[in-house]
Every structure is written in structure tokens, then in C-alpha cells.
Design a protein around this nucleic acid. Structure first.
Length: 466
DNA sequence: TGAAATGTTGGGGCG
DNA sequence: ACGCCCCAACATTTC
């Protein structure tokens, strides 16, 4: 009997459209076992997230449905991938395991271990592109063969790289009838403590619906409007990209060359860039890219951290953004910049604590992007700029990006009747205005937990010290 | 009505 | 791709 069955091991590529791994497998002679392994390290580990677990379960249900449309289905297993794969390979006469590229330190380590162990038993592991717009990250080098550390030159190079073809949905996948599968965990069994109430629905169908709507409308003024907090003209596609419910390359190939479309494609490049950076500098995962900033004396203050996490800093724009995160498991990009600057430059709290909290709450919580962006806003990473250019004044940010206070009032209801002129700093409200607006400072809404201009001075001093 | 106080705008420059 | 402070000069309000 010929062993020529294939396992398509799904991880962060939960889609059937433009999935090169699935597509290649569908073109071979053997049977295909689409397998997802619930990896407890990821599902319940230190950096797991209930919001993401729910999104994952929804995405897996949708993937199963979409596989059924092509006469297949998703097999679920639970445990250590190395053990599960060797068990399934033996039991179902599998000759090759097909996987999609994945560039985080954890996944590289995992994939190497799995590959070594399967190879010992004569089983091939074949890796295909699909996660990023471009692949073969180790081939991207400057003219002098060094690694890009600044975004714009990376972008210029990236723009010229030959793209692979988009893979259509396979017409049919031959999956044997008798493959053992467990049930997915129930969403109702997830720990409710960190489940946000208003999270968008996972899955490939939803991803395509959101993308199609974005690319026919908001993308055209993305260059102008992407910073508008209340209007929220962003694509909101990040969580779907994280789980691979939609392909970055497919999206890039589906949009045109207008200013808005080009500006949005630059965002896709940031994602490739930060994957590239973490791939080349895996130690960034826990330490600053810039050595000189590894000695900053961060303020280790749990009360301030908690106030930030809960959206109770007394700075309305910061609090609105943090409450959006807690409520939706998602935050507008401009909000992320504002709260990131506030945590690291005003409170002077270690960027890793911000990164951890984002990782816990965000449905798009993606190691490479999250790490790269936190290092960016903390001024300790690649793509450097002087620290004074990355200290945001929360009051000015509010005036620029939420001038009518619509975003603030949506997420911070206790400020609903506060006059616009006090939304930068409600503690400046005279007593009678506090009475009228039903917002007593210190009771209904906190005093500012820090003074911005003093904090700014101290941050600049500490940066110049090291 | 004038002078002082307060408000607005714009450019230089910051490691 | 992702700012802002400061200060000078000018404009407006206040008493």
C-alpha cells in the first residue's frame, strides 16, 4: 500500500481562498487530512487571550463549513503538536505534512522541532508561503546585504518584490471518512472574566464581507481619514489577518493604485516589516532593539498600570481608547498610539507591560506587530526617531483626532454631558459646571493621574541619561 | 480710550 | 507615517 496521504496542518491560515498550502495539497494524488491542533500552550498559556480564543473557535467553525463546501471537513485534535502529528501520520498513512510559513520565535521553534521529529520517521514537512504579502524573508537585504532597520527603505524594496499567484479555492478536497476528531471547545465554557462584550465575529466569510465593504468605500479616503477616531475609517481587518482568515496577498492584489489604496497597502507592508524584524531579531521579543535603552529605569507602579488598563487615568482620550479595548477586544490605530505614548512616556511604565495587556485583550494580538509597534511608540525599537518626536500630548491628540468628543463620549459615558472645552481636561471644570454635567471630578471621573508636561520633562531626562 | 491681559498663529528646532 | 514646545509677533478682549 502506498503511503501518500497528506496532513494540512492549519495554524494561522484559517481560510480556503488563497491558501497555497491547502491548494498544493488538493493537487496531489493522495487523500488530504485538514487538521487543526488545539495547542494548550497557545490556548491557555501566559500570553493567551479569551477574546482571541473565542475568535479562533468561530474561525474554526467557519473553516469547517467552508471545507465542507469542497467535500472535506476540519479535523480537530488537542495536545502537543509533535505527538499528535506523529500519531496521526502513523495511524492514517501520511507521507507529508503541509504547513504555511509562520515567523514568530515560538512558531519557528515549534515547526523546527516538529519537522525534525517527523523527518526521523520518514515523513516530509513541506512549508508554503501565505502568511505575508511577500515570503522568503531571509532573502530581503539591503544593497550591502544587511537587514533593513528603517521602514521606508524596506517598503521601497518590498514594493518591487515579485508576488506569487493568488490561489483560488480548491474545487474538491478528498478527505477520508473515518478520521478521528474531537469537538471544539464551547464558547460558553471560556472564562468570562476577560471576555469583552462587543467583539466582532471570527471566520473567513466575515473577513471577506468586511474587506469587500472596505475596498469599495472607505479605502478611497484612507490616506486622509485613517486617523479619525469617531469615524473609524480603518479596515478593521487586523484580527482576520492574525488568524489568516483572509490573505494579505489576496487583499493587496484586489486593490488599485489610488492614494487611499496605496496608503492602505503601506499598512500591509508594516505587518510584513515587523514579521521580518522579529524573524531577524528574535531577542526583540523580550528586550529593546536599541541596546542603549535597555537600561531605562521604568516606573514600576501597579496602581498607575491598573488605572491605565481600566481607562481611569483622568485623560479622556486615553480612557476612551482603553475602554474601547476592554469593550471590543480591539482599538483604533490612533488610539493605540495615544495610549502607548501615555503608558511609556507619561506614566513611564515598561512597554512590555503594555504589550502584555494588549496581547491579553486584542483579538488581533499578533506577536510580531504588537512587539514592533510597542517598541516603536516606546522609542526603543527599529525605525528610530528621537524620543521627543514620539511623546504625544493627550490633550492635543484629542483636539486633532476627536475634535467633537464623539469618540470620548461613546466610550466614557460619565463625560456625556461635559462641555467640549473641558474634554481635554475635565478636572478644570468649575464646580457649577461639574454639577450641571453630572460629573463630579474625583467621584464620577478621576483627577488626572499624572501631569503631562512634568512627566514629559522627566521622560526626556531619563532618555538622555542612558 | 489705552494699557494690560488674554488669545491665536507660525516658524525654529529639538539627540 | 504617525510631534510638540517655545517664543515672538500680532489680534482681540477686558477694565
Amino acid at each position: 500500500m502506498v503511503k501518500n496521504n497528506i496532513i494540512v496542518w492549519f495554524r494561522n491560515d484559517l481560510r480556503v481562498l488563497d491558501n497555497p498550502t491547502l491548494s498544493k495539497a488538493s493537487k496531489t494524488d493522495g487523500n488530504v487530512i485538514p487538521l487543526f491542533i488545539l495547542d494548550k500552550q497557545l490556548f491557555n498559556g501566559a500570553r493567551s487571550s479569551q477574546n482571541r480564543n473565542r475568535f479562533l473557535i468561530e474561525s474554526l467553525i467557519n473553516l469547517d463549513n467552508n471545507l465542507k463546501k469542497i467535500k472535506s471537513r476540519l479535523i480537530i485534535a488537542e495536545g502537543d503538536p509533535e505527538l499528535i502529528l506523529s500519531e496521526y501520520c502513523k495511524k492514517y498513512e501520511v507521507s507529508s505534512v503541509y504547513i504555511s510559513e509562520d515567523y514568530t520565535p515560538y512558531s519557528i521553534k515549534r515547526d523546527n522541532a516538529v519537522t525534525n521529529s517527523l523527518n526521523k520517521n520518514g515523513i516530509q514537512v513541506n512549508k508554503f508561503p501565505g502568511r505575508l504579502v511577500v515570503s522568503n524573508l531571509d532573502a530581503i537585504r539591503t544593497k550591502t546585504e544587511s537587514i533593513f532597520k528603517v521602514y521606508t527603505p524596506f517598503y521601497n524594496n518590498w514594493s518591487l518584490i515579485q508576488r506569487r499567484q493568488v490561489c483560488p479555492i480548491p474545487e474538491k478536497i478528498n478527505t477520508p471518512a473515518d478520521i478521528y476528531s474531537i469537538e471544539l471547545p464551547k464558547i460558553s465554557d471560556l472564562d468570562k472574566k476577560y471576555l469583552s462584550p462587543n467583539v466582532s465575529l471570527g471566520g473567513e466569510d466575515k473577513a471577506l464581507e468586511i474587506f469587500n465593504s472596505f475596498k469599495s468605500k472607505n479605502i478611497f479616503d484612507y490616506n486622509e481619514a485613517h486617523n479619525d477616531l469617531p469615524g473609524d475609517k480603518t479596515s478593521r481587518i487586523s484580527p482576520y489577518l492574525h488568524f489568516g482568515c483572509i490573505s494579505a496577498l489576496y487583499m493587496e492584489s484586489s486593490v488599485g493604485q489610488s492614494d487611499g489604496e496605496t496608503a492602505w497597502k503601506r499598512q500591509l507592508c508594516w505587518r510584513d516589516f515587523y514579521n521580518y524584524i522579529l524573524f531577524n531579531y528574535p531577542s526583540n521579543i523580550r528586550s529593546e532593539f536599541q541596546e542603549k535603552y535597555r537600561n531605562l529605569k521604568w516606573n514600576n507602579n501597579d496602581a498607575l498600570l491598573k488605572a491605565w488598563q481600566e481607562g481611569k487615568t483622568g485623560y479622556p482620550i486615553v480612557d476612551a481608547a482603553m475602554r474601547q479595548l476592554n469593550n471590543e477586544g480591539w482599538m483604533h490605530n490612533r488610539g493605540r498610539l495615544i495610549v502607548g505614548s501615555f503608558l511609556t512616556k507619561d506614566l513611564f511604565i515598561d512597554w512590555r507591560k503594555g504589550e502584555d495587556y494588549f496581547q491579553k485583550m486584542l483579538i488581533d494580538g499578533d506577536i510580531s506587530n504588537n512587539n514592533g509597534n510597542w517598541q516603536w511608540i516606546a522609542s526603543v525599537g527599529v525605525d528610530p526617531a528621537p524620543v521627543f518626536r514620539r511623546i504625544f500630548n493627550p490633550t492635543l491628540q484629542q483636539e486633532k483626532f476627536d475634535p467633537d468628543g464623539v469618540y470620548i463620549k461613546k466610550y466614557v459615558p460619565e463625560l456625556k454631558n461635559v462641555p467640549l472645552k473641558y474634554l481635554g481636561d475635565p478636572s478644570l471644570m468649575p464646580n457649577d459646571v461639574q454639577e450641571e454635567s453630572g460629573c463630579k471630578i474625583g467621584k464620577d471621573y478621576p483627577f488626572p493621574i499624572i501631569n503631562h508636561s512634568e512627566a514629559r520633562k522627566m521622560t526626556l531626562e531619563e532618555f538622555s541619561r542612558v
